[in-house]
Structure formats: C-alpha cells, structure tokens
C-alpha cells in the first residue's frame, strides 16, 4: 500500500507541526508514506470564492503528483472534500478523487486502528468541522435522524488519559469559510466567538478537530475573548507522546 501525504498550502505554511505529526503517526502505524515535493494548493479557496476555473490547473498538477498512489491522505477535511467531490468535474479521467481520504477516515476506515495511540491527559472538546461532517461523513450530522457515530471521537478514545467532550450545538459552523471570513467579517467573527465560547463552556483545555482552518478561526476567537483554551489538530493529539 503506497500512501501519498498531501499537506495543503496553509498547513504547509502555517501549521507545519500538523504535517510532522501526520507523518509521525502514519510511520508509527507502519504505513509506507511518501510526501511528494512540489505540491501546493488543491484550489478550494478560489473555487469556493467563485473562481473554480482557477482551480483547474491545480487539480491537474495534483493529479500528476498523486495519481499513482493507492491512497492520498491529508490532515484537512475541506481540502479532501474538495478533491473528492469537485475534481471529477474539473478534470477528465480523474484518478485521485476516489483515493483522497482525510487522515481520520484513513485511520478509522482503512487502517481500522484499534491499538493504543499517544498519551494526552487533558479534557478535549471535539470541533466537528462542517466539511468533515456533511461532506466526508466523519460523524452523524445533527440534522439527520441516523444512528449516531463520530470517527474522531472513536480515535481520540484510543489516547491514554484523555477526556473527550463535545460542545452544545456540536456541529454548528465556526464561521471561517475561506473567503467568507473576509467578505463577511462581522458574521464570521461572531460565529467564531459563539463557537469557541461553547467549546470553552465544556471546561475543555483543548479544542481539537480535523481541519486547521477551523482551528485557526477558533484560536483567533479565543484570543479575541481572552479565553484560556488552546487548539490542536487531531493528529497532534493522536501522535502526542509517540
């Protein structure tokens, strides 16, 4: 099984520790993982803002980089969702779309990780990112009457010493939304503050989630409100102490 690691642009530039944790975690689990140099962005920010055409070149480039792997794994639900759901309409004969998995899906559904992972003796509140919930199915959406599940929670519970909680309104949007945060600054900030307050109300020391862009919005909101709560990507927690 050949696994290509996709580290989206903003994770590469702003959250390299999330990339490192992904690598560490996958290697710890015995996965043969390769990081192809020369990758940049999947094109989602432009497309969601209304400039999908600008994503086409990037999709082709992505296909070249990752087309020959068995799986393309990324620590980012919204980028993964974009590759999986939008690439087939952007480029012909797209191979990567079906192979693209968020790292939570990969660990939970492909590797079916059951064994003990790292150690993290803290109370952690799960941030269920919209695209994880409603595009990749990482957890049962609160809107639907289907059996309840949460793959992030399943994985976190393999971490020693952890106390996992979820906020009230467990999958309401944090208000980031890419270019939304710029165009709708007032609403975006309000959503971010509302969301982090609900996380803080659980008594958690950390918020964790599958997407660093949501976590970036949440840590900005925490600072705005002066809340003492930190954000860590789920891979960092799973890999901590390994």
């Amino acid at each position: 099984m050949k696994v290509g690691l996709f580290i989206p642009c903003y994770v590469d530039a702003l959250f390299p520790e999330v990339g490192m944790a992904s690598l560490k975690l996958l290697r710890h689990l015995g996965v043969e993982v390769v990081y192809p140099q020369g990758q940049t962005c999947c094109g989602q920010p432009m497309a969601n803002g209304g400039f999908e055409k600008q994503a086409t070149h990037l999709a082709r480039k992505f296909e070249d980089k990752f087309g020959n792997f068995d799986y393309v794994v990324a620590p980012s639900v919204s980028c993964t969702a974009f590759v999986r759901h939008n690439y087939p309409s952007l480029i012909k004969d797209c191979k990567v779309a079906d192979k693209a998995l968020d790292i939570v899906e990969f660990l939970h559904d492909v590797l079916k990780v059951k064994g003990p992972l790292g150690r993290f003796p803290h109370r952690v509140s799960i941030h269920n990112s919209c695209h994880g919930v409603r595009e990749l199915g990482l957890s049962s959406p609160s809107e639907q009457n289907i059996p309840k599940f949460n793959k992030i929670r399943d994985l976190l519970q393999l971490v020693e010493g952890i106390d996992v909680v979820e906020p009230e309104r467990p999958d309401e949007c944090c208000g980031f939304g890419g270019l939304f945060a710029m165009e709708e600054k007032a609403v975006s900030q309000r959503m971010g503050c509302d969301k982090i307050s609900r996380h803080a109300a659980t008594g958690a020391e950390y918020v964790t989630g599958p997407d660093s862009s949501c976590l970036m919005q949440l840590s900005a909101s925490a600072e705005r409100l002066g809340l003492d709560i930190k954000c860590k990507h789920v891979v960092e927690i799973l890999a901590s102490g390994l």
Partner: peptide, 27 residues
C-alpha cells in the same frame, strides 16, 4: 512573506509564523 497569500484578517492575533514550512522541514 506568507502574509502575501494569507489575508491579514485570518491571522489569529498571536499567531507566530513558523520558521520553516512543512515542505522544508520534511526535506
């Protein structure tokens, strides 16, 4: 210079820019 591609408004107040991006660290 990452500021050139990431809008200022998105930056959490105290976000420290990492010294190196992932693609260099991994090398």
């Amino acid at each position: 210079s990452v500021m050139n591609i990431v809008p200022r408004d998105w930056m959490p107040f105290g976000l420290r820019f990492p010294r190196k991006p992932f693609h260099k660290l991994v090398k």
